[in-house]
């Protein structure tokens, strides 16, 4: 059998009336991989996922899911999804809702197991609409997993979940990935992607701006920085002419200078007797790395 990716997006654009939500995006996702679609709010993640699932039509370009058309029932029976902004169904209990979804698939996972992986065992007999936001997300996860899917889509899955729920959730997703399932998740936290994904595709304004392992993205994007409280006489212009300063971030009296070589830069700054207090040198956290990456792309 010829090798076939789980998801193949080829030069896809989605144009809403006056907004290009996805811009010539190409992405191939191999079976058995855990990929994070990473990007700030409004980057086009949900739109991309919707097009892969066949819920939206691309303006141009092609999308293939499991080698076929996402509208094909045979394809649908092999996928599961947690969509963003999906609420629960009214007047049904948790167990009943899960059983309803199980009935759609020919080889569903057992109800007990779905309750366990979503941590909703105790809520089984409660009306789904009475669950908290985080519990409703977990119910959404149970529904996504109901058919024991080969490809699992998770659009901002952990929004509203507390720390414990999040940990259980990621453990379960990891276990599913370990069984060879393909996972495509979206998030706007690089840290989350780093914990779970073996690949991160970063998108901003509908375009792919970086693609690789989360750690490689981290490494390429991490600029080190020096921050300090500026003295009265310090101006932006004085800093701009200092060699080695890549970018300046000025918040109140707190200044942050980005540089690829902070060791040299600190030397220069001290040598020029810049008015600085409370100096700190940071090696750029994950979130900063991500923010840098986005800045670079603009």
């Amino acid at each position: 059998m010829k090798h076939e990716p789980a998801i193949q997006i080829d030069n896809v654009t989605k144009q809403f009336k006056d907004k290009k939500a996805v811009d010539r995006l190409s992405l191939t996702i191999e079976k058995g991989s855990v990929t994070a679609l990473l990007g700030p709010n409004g980057a086009g993640k949900t739109t991309t996922v919707s097009m892969i699932l066949g819920l939206m039509k691309p303006t141009s370009g092609t999308v293939k899911l499991l080698g076929g058309d996402p509208h094909d029932r045979a394809v649908r029976s092999r996928i599961g999804a947690m969509l963003q902004d999906t609420s629960v169904i009214d007047d049904l209990k948790v167990g009943e809702t899960i059983d309803l979804f199980r009935s759609y698939y020919s080889r569903p996972l057992p109800l007990e197991r779905l309750l366990a992986i979503s941590g909703l065992g105790a809520e089984r007999g409660k009306l789904a609409a009475s669950l908290s936001g985080g519990q409703q997300r977990r119910l959404g996860f149970a529904l996504a997993a109901a058919g024991d899917p080969e490809v699992l889509f998770l659009d901002e899955p952990t929004v509203g979940m507390d720390v414990t729920a999040r940990a259980l959730f990621w453990d379960t997703v990891r276990a599913m990935a370990g069984k060879g399932k393909t996972v495509l998740m979206t998030t706007h936290y690089l840290e989350e992607a780093d914990q779970i994904a073996d690949r991160a595709a970063v998108i901003s304004q509908g375009r792919l701006i970086a693609d690789g392992t989360p750690s490689s993205i981290k490494a390429s994007a991490t600029g080190r920085s020096i921050s300090f409280t500026a003295g009265e006489s310090l101006t932006r212009d004085m800093l701009l002419v200092v060699p080695g300063v890549a970018d300046i971030d000025w918040k109140g009296s707190r200044v942050r200078l980005y540089s690829t070589d902070t060791d040299r830069l600190i030397g220069v700054l001290l040598e020029r007797k810049m008015p600085m207090r409370d100096i700190e040198i940071q090696s750029g956290g994950l979130e900063e790395a991500f923010q840098n990456l986005l800045k670079k792309a603009q």
């Binding site: 969509l83 999906t86 759609y104």
Partner: peptide, 21 residues
Amino acid sequence: QRVSRERAQGWIRLLRMTPLP
């Protein structure tokens, strides 16, 4: 009202990606 709520709450969207015709 039930149909409308299901539409507004994204339930119908979710069903569209399941194998339920």
